[in-house]
Amino acid sequence: MVDSPAPPPLQPVVVGVSPGQPPHIVQHAARFAAAFRAELICAYVNPGRFTTSESDDGSVTSRSIDPDFSEPGEDEFDAGLEAELADILAGTHVTWSTRLLAGDITVALGHLATTVDAAMIVVGTHERSFSGGVQEFFNRSVAVHLAHRQQRPVVVIPARPPGVTSPLPWVEAP
Rank of each mutant, 00 (worst) to 15 (best):
Ala30Asn: 03
Phe130Thr: 14
Thr98Val: 11
Thr51Leu: 04
Val14Ile: 13
His24Lys: 12
Val116Glu: 01
Ser97Ile: 02
Glu84Trp: 06
Phe36Asn: 10
Asp56Trp: 06
Ile88His: 06
Val171Gln: 09
Thr51Gln: 10
Ser70Ile: 10
Val144Asn: 05
Arg37His: 15
Thr92Glu: 12
Phe77Tyr: 10
Pro22Leu: 02
Ala102Glu: 04
Ile105Asn: 01
Pro22Cys: 04
Leu109Val: 02
Arg37Gln: 15
Ser59Thr: 05
Val122Ile: 07
Ala33Ser: 07
Arg49Glu: 13
Phe77Pro: 04
Gly16Pro: 00
Asp75Cys: 10
Asp68Phe: 05
Val26Phe: 00
Ala113Gln: 08
Cys42Pro: 00
Gly133Ser: 12
Gly132Gln: 03
Val155Pro: 01
Gly132His: 04
Pro5Val: 00
Phe32Ser: 06
Arg31Lys: 14
Pro19Cys: 04
Gln21Asn: 02
Val2Ala: 14
Ala159Asp: 02
Leu40Gln: 01
Thr95Trp: 01
His28Met: 11
Glu172Gln: 10
Ser59Cys: 11
Ile157Gln: 07
Ser64Phe: 01
Ser55Asn: 13
Ile105Ser: 05
Glu136Asn: 09
Glu84Val: 03
Asp104Ile: 02
Glu54Cys: 15
Pro153Tyr: 06
Cys42Met: 05
Ala102Met: 07
Ile105Leu: 07
Leu81Pro: 03
Phe69Glu: 14
Leu40Met: 10
Ala29Met: 06
Thr165Met: 12
Val15Leu: 09
Thr125Val: 00
Pro19Phe: 00
Gly58Asn: 03
Ala29Trp: 00
Cys42Ser: 06
Arg31Met: 15
His93Asn: 15
Ser141Ile: 01
Glu71Tyr: 00
Val17Gln: 00
Asn139Gln: 14
Leu168Tyr: 07
Ser97Glu: 05
His145Asp: 09
Val60Ala: 03
Ala102His: 01
Leu40Trp: 02
Arg152Gln: 13
Phe50Met: 10
Ala173Met: 08
His111Phe: 05
Gly124Ala: 07
Phe130Ser: 07
